[in-house]
């Protein structure tokens, strides 16, 4: 049976802390940065670098056995994977935000039919459904904060760790969809068929937290 493949984000705020964590657990990439599936200093363990949003997809389908990605992304894809450890780093909230001068103080106040831009359409839709507001979701791929000011949308659902980016773009948070941190996730079948390898790896990583 082949060894373990651990998926980590290929860029973004989670990549460096994820690689540092693996490094401290004795797993260091030995191939150069352009190699997406890299061998490591640990025999039989490979590191796969893909987009954070895609990591649950690779892990759910068993292409990668383990993965490091945000709770926000796992929830957005809605795929069933095990979350074997809360890694603590990458803390942020997924929030609803509107323009600074908006009269709306909470998501429930938004008028029916409001337009909302987000990178998290599934979570946003579910959140507004639960709050009884019908919104039109517009999916963007980044820099979502600029959309309200330019008049594309009435509000956004986006990640915020300190609130600084929201503020700099003239926005205020009015509700929280969820809190997120980086998680160590595992494929449900790998957990069972590679139990010893997975347990050993998870314990090594937990020991470094």
């Amino acid at each position: 049976m082949r060894g373990l493949i651990i998926a980590v984000p290929n860029k973004g705020r989670l990549r460096e802390p994820a690689l540092r964590l693996l490094d401290s657990a004795g797993i260091r990439r030995i191939d150069d940065d352009r190699v997406y599936l890299a061998n490591t200093t640990m025999d039989g363990v490979q590191v796969l670098s893909v987009r954070a949003m895609d990591i649950p997809v690779y892990v759910y389908n068993g292409i990668a056995d383990l993965g490091i990605t945000g709770r926000d992304v796992i929830a957005e894809t809605g795929l069933e994977v095990y979350e074997l450890a809360d890694l603590g780093f990458g803390a942020c909230d997924l929030v609803v935000a509107v323009k600074e001068g908006s009269p709306h103080g909470q998501p429930k106040d938004l008028p029916q039919g409001s337009k909302v831009a987000t990178e998290f359409p599934n979570l946003a839709r579910r959140y507004f459904n639960e709050n009884g507001v019908q919104v039109e979701i517009i999916t963007l791929r980044g820099a979502v904060e600029i959309a309200p000011v330019l008049g594309l949308v009435d509000g956004i659902v986006d990640l915020s760790s300190t609130g600084a980016t929201l503020e700099r773009n003239g926005l205020k948070p009015i509700g929280k969809v969820l809190s997120s941190t980086a998680r160590l996730i595992c494929n449900k079948v790998s957990y069972r068929t590679k139990y010893d390898m997975v347990e050993k790896m998870v314990n090594r990583i937990r020991g470094r937290l």
Partner: peptide
Amino acid sequence: FEIFLGGLGVP
């Protein structure tokens, strides 16, 4: 119960 098989990512 769930039935699964190594090498196949989903039950």
